[in-house]
């Protein structure tokens, strides 16, 4: 028997596979497809203090081996997430979940975390400082080391739960941002959020997305994400959650060798609602194939020698 368990900021996961925020709703609707208790954890839909409708449609565009989205943090607001979404999920899913929080000011992050903090089912906060689809928010914190540090420090001061800062790839040097978060008490970092992109419709001769720009995700971004996880692993000591185009058990191993302690599966859930289930079922087989008995032992393995 191979051991697929990993440890993420002091909490044990039976396996490292976590559906990524924004691609899995609040989880419970996926019980139509399979028993979601097999998941290592679930990163919940990005939540803000106030409800948000998000951006106008079209919000979605096809790209080569990828999807461009400009959803814009649609969510029912932190109070509703606490009182309805988390309660509904709790009746089904029995492991700690990752609450993903976003904001337009430091105070917004504080308010949302304060509202959600009391829920014992939340094992970690994932602090999204990297959403490319909301103007004047999210990304503004994630592309500047000082701002990233400020959000980290402030959130660190109001919760005892582990905080994982979700980083943007839309920066010159992601390791600078990661180090700034680590220095202010982040327990982990997750990367990468989507790459800022655009698609132009040749029929209308205008950007296809109503928001003009969107975030690119899917297999096309995987090599970029692996490279960034590899670089961040050499720059910080805190655990890394690897994200970016993961669609198979082999992809999971690749990210862990680059330095990820766990992974989030995003776009794959959109084209195949069973994607995480298949990856989890394939993981022991892939481990055997590559002679891996204990998954946590391969974290950062690509850096040795």
């Amino acid at each position: 028997m191979v051991d697929t368990s990993v440890n993420l900021c002091g909490i044990k996961l039976t396996n490292p596979v976590i559906p990524a925020s924004g691609t899995f709703g609040f989880g419970y609707e996926f019980t139509r497809f399979y028993d979601i208790n097999i998941l290592g954890s679930i990163a919940l839909k990005g939540t803000t203090k106030e409800p948000r409708f998000g951006n106008p449609t079209p919000r979605i565009a096809e790209c080569p081996s990828a999807v461009l989205n400009s959803v814009g943090l649609q969510n029912p607001g932190a109070e509703r997430v606490l009182n309805y979404e988390l309660k509904t999920l709790k009746s089904i899913y029995k492991k700690p979940v990752i609450a993903n929080v976003s904001g337009f000011s430091v105070n917004d992050y504080v308010s949302a975390v304060n509202i959600l903090n009391e829920d014992s089912n939340i094992g970690w906060f994932e602090i999204n400082i990297s959403c490319p689809n909301v103007h004047g928010g999210g990304l503004a914190f994630g592309t500047n080391a000082e701002n990233a540090a400020l959000v980290t420090k402030t959130v660190r001061g109001i919760t005892n739960k582990p905080i994982i800062i979700k980083l943007s790839p839309n920066v010159t040097d992601i390791t600078e941002i990661a180090k700034a978060c680590e220095a202010e008490g982040a327990d982990g970092v997750s990367l990468i959020n989507t790459l800022l992109g655009m698609k132009i419709d040749l029929k209308t001769k205008k950007p296809l997305l109503a928001n003009k720009t969107g975030g690119l995700s899917g297999p096309a971004v995987k090599p970029v994400a692996v490279r960034m996880v590899y670089q961040v692993y050499e720059a910080v000591k805190i655990p890394i959650v690897g994200i970016g185009g993961i669609a198979s058990a082999d992809d999971v191993l690749e990210f862990m060798l680059a330095g990820a302690a766990a992974v989030e599966v995003g776009a794959a859930n959109l084209i195949d609602p069973y994607a995480c289930k298949k990856i989890i079922e394939d993981l022991p087989k892939a481990m055997k194939k590559y002679g891996i008995n204990n998954l946590s032992e391969i974290i950062g393995g690509a850096h040795n020698g």
């Binding site: 924004g22 691609t23 899995f24 709703g25 609707e29 996926f30 839909k45 409708f53 998000g54 449609t57 079209p58 919000r59 979605i60 565009a61 999807v67 989205n69 959803v71 649609q74 859930n269 959109l270 084209i271 609602p273």
Partner: peptide, 22 residues
Amino acid sequence: EERMGCGTGACMGCTCKTKNGP
């Protein structure tokens, strides 16, 4: 009709406004 990401409710790509909320 709307451009969709997943078709299964996960991505919020096709949301419209209604009198009863999004």
